[in-house]
Design a protein around this nucleic acid. Structure first.
Lengths: 255, 255
DNA sequence: GGTTAGCATTATGTTATACATAATAGTACT
DNA sequence: AGTACTATTATGTATAACATAATGCTAACC
């Protein structure tokens, strides 16, 4: 049985907070007058409840009707506020069950709603650059977390990798598998999610005629070379190795 | 005079798209049955209009009532769909004027709504790590874009910087000014916005007892040293220099 | 006795209507 | 021409009603 909140307490906090926010708008200073809507206030109110730990992950929040009653606003306003929280990944709502507090997944949310087609060219290019920054900068974390098992997995990935391949799809699959594995090895879930979110953009930019020069097939430091560095080298060596490995991409960016 | 859309055409596209989406739900395969709500469909519908370039930046979207009429749904549903687009940064809505298409700002949106208090400890730590990754990995872009003027600005920032300071606030201000400037120099707006979004988290993690060891005041490569590398060195040297400069932070992460 | 079919309940999803509010546009007045 | 007032219009908010889907209860059935 899922424990439900004490509505009385929730109502108490909600109302006092709401009153506080409304009070603030009636200040006599002209510093910044309040343009926030009722929905804004209710949203802020609910978020504050989360921040103050009155509501914890897994808790069920009251129904729209009860919230509305306690907050003294219409169900319409409550619904919009809840919708915002849902978009921010703070709650999940199931029919009948009501809404449940969830742990927000920063990049997961945007990832679902981010479409390369909606971004302007400059932003797309910048995101492409961001990838290069990440993969060069992650060296220390790779060396910190890497295990013998990881090395074996990497080797398995590059095992059947041809030196040069004309098959773009095959090539890109290997690229994603290998580089994706690196993100995974860092053990940094946020970093991994970030990459997952940006992946569609990478592919889109890579294909669209956004970058100046076409991709060359010339290889610099290979995947095998990078693995070798991970086994026997150092973060410094890896950074330079990865920088060299990505030379193709850099050449396409720097005219 | 802002040009308004041809409602007839908009209505046409909207309805056909909506019908298409609804049709898809009636497929005879059991692959994945449709659980999307009406709001989901309208949202997808409107986004598709953006993707298809039927709506461009600066265009004014029809009023809620007209959209509702054209789409054959209630105003409530239309409002919720528009609210979602607004949260995704795709439109801005002004009273009376209606909604206007805007260029989405990926990180700006989340930044406004991201509160360190709402993130779990592990995520906070990972974001802290992310910063280190970024600042080490950005070396090539720094060297690509840096000018003499930039060097002068950096020198001005570190000019009055004491070798060691006990004043934490003073210290952190210098840190933000210097490192923020570096992000700026890369010319990558997305990167800069990303940093701006993460800044509150950095500060929060730095202060909260999340990291293992307390911050030491011991200096490795200094800001001045980094500037020197930017003037006379290379990306490789800068990466190592920055890695060393951030040693304090790494020490706090790696137990 | 345990399983299942069916019904009642409940909370979200959706529609409809009405009014409040704020920004714009228009108009009359000076 | 410029200001003040009014009318208009589209979003913001409130209310009521019904639809829908998930849950839980109950009773019939094997």
């Amino acid at each position: 049985m899922i424990k439900r909140l004490n509505y009385t307490i929730l109502g108490y906090y909600s109302i006092t907070l709401l009153l506080y926010i409304i009070m603030k708008t009636e200040t006599h200073t002209f510093s910044q007058l309040d343009t926030s809507s009722l929905v804004d206030k209710v949203e802020a109110n609910l978020v504050q409840l989360l921040v103050d730990q009155k509501l914890k992950i897994g808790d069920v929040i009251p129904t729209e009707i009860e919230l509305s009653k306690n907050l003294g606003v219409s169900r319409t306003v409550t619904r919009e506020a809840l919708l915002r929280l849902r978009m921010r990944g703070l709650i999940e709502t199931k029919k009948k069950k009501g809404s449940v507090i969830t742990s927000p997944d920063i990049f997961g949310i945007i990832g679902k709603t981010m479409d390369p087609h909606l971004l302007d060219q400059e932003t797309l290019k910048e995101i492409f650059e961001l990838r290069l920054v990440l993969e060069i900068g992650m060296a220390d974390f790779l060396f910190q977390k890497i295990t013998a098992a990881h090395i074996r997995e990497l080797k398995a990935i590059v095992k059947n990798e041809p030196d040069t391949s004309e098959d773009y799809v095959f090539h890109i699959e290997h690229e994603i598998a290998f580089h994706g594995k690196l993100y995974e090895i860092t053990g940094n879930q946020t970093l991994k999610k970030f990459q997952k979110m940006l992946l569609p953009v990478f592919d889109y930019v890579h294909n669209s005629g956004l970058l100046k020069k076409p991709a060359t097939i010339k290889k610099f430091v290979s995947h095998k070379g990078l693995i070798d560095i991970l086994e026997n080298g150092s973060p410094e060596l890896f950074r330079n190795g990865m920088r060299n490995h990505l030379e193709n991409h850099f050449l396409r960016i720097f005219s």
